[in-house]
């Protein structure tokens, strides 16, 4: 009787021990797996960090060089003296300023686009001048007519532009056009004060926004213009 009880208890004890051993083994396995996984993850993240670090450093160096060239051109424009002493002074000064503020001038501009942008900017210039001229005439008519048929209103619209520099360009060209003033930009939403209904209507057609988007290579216009360029090159090749 006692012997059978003893055997049963020892059996159960062995069972419990085996189960515990299995669980411990599973735990060990899973922990080993976890550590290997985390190890690979950490390695991957480190590699990515090194990669992005190098890319950022390259970007900073490129910004530094381009800022130096732009500022040196500005220095030449200001100075107008071409003897060695003043040119060396200019190089030293532009290097100093580029070191101080190389992250400011070209903060989020892809450098390769600058030439295309400059060409499109000068191509769009006459259109803006014509727009300003016609708006000037309209505002002069409003101010000089004795009844003064103004209808001031604040209009708000959501823009399709994305970068801050194109927002600023759009806001400044709206302000430069007589009769409209940009009050605020809040997360891509423009608040514009317009002098009368016609000016507000001209603004809401979005022609100016399209021009800006074309100059800064944004939104849908990239694709249309790119397709046109490519088709021209393709035709020339044929």
């Amino acid at each position: 009787m006692e012997i059978t009880v003893l055997v049963q208890t020892t059996d159960r004890a062995f069972e419990i021990l085996e189960k515990a051993r299995d669980e411990a083994r599973e735990l060990l396995y899973s922990s080993a797996k976890l550590t290997s996984e985390t190890k690979s993850l950490v390695e991957k993240r480190e590699a990515r960090a090194i990669f992005s670090d190098a890319r950022q450093k390259r970007l900073a160096i490129r910004n530094f060089i381009i800022t130096t060239f732009v500022l040196f051109a500005f220095w030449i424009l200001l100075s107008g003296r071409f003897d060695a002493f003043h040119l060396i002074l200019g190089i030293i000064c532009t290097l100093l300023v580029s070191y101080l503020s190389h992250d400011l001038l070209f903060a989020n501009i892809r450098v390769g686009d600058i030439r295309i942008r400059a060409r499109r900017f000068f191509a769009a210039g006459p259109w803006f001048l014509g727009q300003i001229f016609s708006a000037n005439l309209h505002v002069a008519y409003l101010a000089l007519s004795p009844k003064m048929p103004i209808d001031p209103q604040i209009i708000r619209f959501k823009t399709k532009l994305e970068s801050d520099i194109s927002w600023v360009a759009l806001a400044n060209s709206i302000t430069l056009t007589p009769g409209t003033i940009t009050i605020d930009i809040r997360e891509g939403e423009f608040f514009v004060h317009a002098l009368d209904r016609k000016v507000a209507y001209d603004l809401s057609t979005g022609e100016m926004e399209d021009k800006i988007a074309h100059v800064f290579m944004e939104a849908d216009h990239i694709y249309i213009q790119d397709v046109l360029d490519v088709s021209r090159i393709f035709g020339a090749l044929k």
Binding site: T67, L71, F74, L78, V97, S98, L100, S101, L105
Partner: peptide, 8 residues
């Protein structure tokens, strides 16, 4: 940056 170059 342009203001700084001008100052120098």
């Amino acid at each position: 940056p342009f203001i700084q170059v001008y100052a120098l």
